[in-house]
Amino acid sequence: MNRREALKTSGGTIALALAVSAGLVNSSAVSAQAWNKTAFEVKSLNDVVKAMGGTAATESKDISFVNAPDIAENGAVVPVGATSKIPKTESISILVEKNPNALSASFMIPEGTEPTVSTRVKMGQTSNIYALVKADGKYFYAVKEVKVTLGGCGG
């Protein structure tokens, strides 16, 4: 990328960020298609819930982690899956508390698809991971600590 291109790209990003913060772009309304930039930039569970258009999340025993390890040998590749038994689950998001930005991935579950997803994330250090579930307009979460013996950020 040359300097001209870099300036152009960063200019565009700033303009979008400004538009979002000024309320010109309603981030929750466009989140179905457009990438929810705000949600991916905030650092805590509560801020992510707010960026997705909710108010607060409650802990739920109906969400469980599948194949998430207690100890991850390599933080660059940590398998994480989450499953929700809450009726009308609309989305499942995976958050890593101590990463530079908490939100890792967010999955929209249409009707007919099982509320179970699994993927792999990066973890910078030992941290709590959250599975955040949106069901029937409300937010629920489950938490699990994953110990990392080798960090995955910064190479």
């Binding site: 989140s31 179905a32 990438w35 929810n36 949600a39 991916f40 660059a76 590749v77 940590v78 890593v96 990463n99 930005n101 939100l103 890792s104 991935a105 967010s106 999955f107 929209m108 579950i109 249409p110 698809t113 997803v117 993927t119 792999r120 994330v121 990066k122 973890m123 995955g152």
Partner: peptide, 10 residues
């Protein structure tokens, strides 16, 4: 299924 991913996906 549709998903939004951030840079923290491996």
């Amino acid at each position: 299924l549709s998903a939004q991913w951030g840079p923290a996906v491996s």
